[in-house]
């Protein structure tokens, strides 16, 4: 279940927007301009079912997102969706992985406290006995140069 963000959870000055998400969901987003740096040496790992609902998260995911494990499990992965990310990026992601291919890109993720963090994400289909049973997403620390390129590029894709 995906809930609207709560004012009490937000740290710092914030803006408000309502996002349309995959699966005809809408969510009220409260977001700040505070960046959390990606921690050195860690990978953020999650798996979802074929509909993008979270089935597994690792500790780094919990720490960087700011949510508890219980808040994340059985929730759409779009809980991380930041309004600065162009919908075209996620359409490309879904088109790619639903064809059984690997997707890679730079993503600005939203935290529970309204802040954000940049990642280099790779998503692959989990194929078991010839059937896609879900998707695994692994995020690693991005290069700052690539992030700067995305900061310029993404606003042009809306």
């Amino acid at each position: 279940m995906l809930h609207d963000m709560k004012h009490d959870d937000i740290v710092g000055d914030y803006q408000e927007i309502t996002l349309n998400l995959f699966g005809n969901l809408t969510r009220k987003i409260l977001y700040t301009q505070i960046e959390t740096p990606y921690p050195d040496g860690k990978l953020i790992v999650s798996t979802t079912d074929p509909n993008g609902v979270i089935t597994h998260v690792n500790q780094a995911f919990i720490e960087m997102s700011g949510y508890t494990k219980d808040e994340l499990l059985n929730t759409p992965h779009s809980i991380l969706r930041h309004p600065d990310m162009p919908p075209a990026a996620f359409k490309d992601l879904w088109d790619t992985i639903q064809k059984g291919n690997k997707w890679q890109g730079f993503v600005k993720n939203l935290r529970k406290d309204g802040g954000y963090y940049w990642v280099k994400a790779t998503v692959i289909p989990n194929v078991r006995n010839g059937k896609v049973t879900g998707y695994t997403s692994v995020r690693r620390k991005p290069s700052r140069t690539k992030v700067e390129e995305c900061i310029k590029l993404y606003p042009t894709l809306f």
Binding site: V45, T47, K102, Q104, T122, V123, T136, V138
Partner: peptide
Amino acid sequence: MEFMIDLMDTLNT
């Protein structure tokens, strides 16, 4: 094991 293989696959990109 399948999970670790998938993970290695994402890293080997």
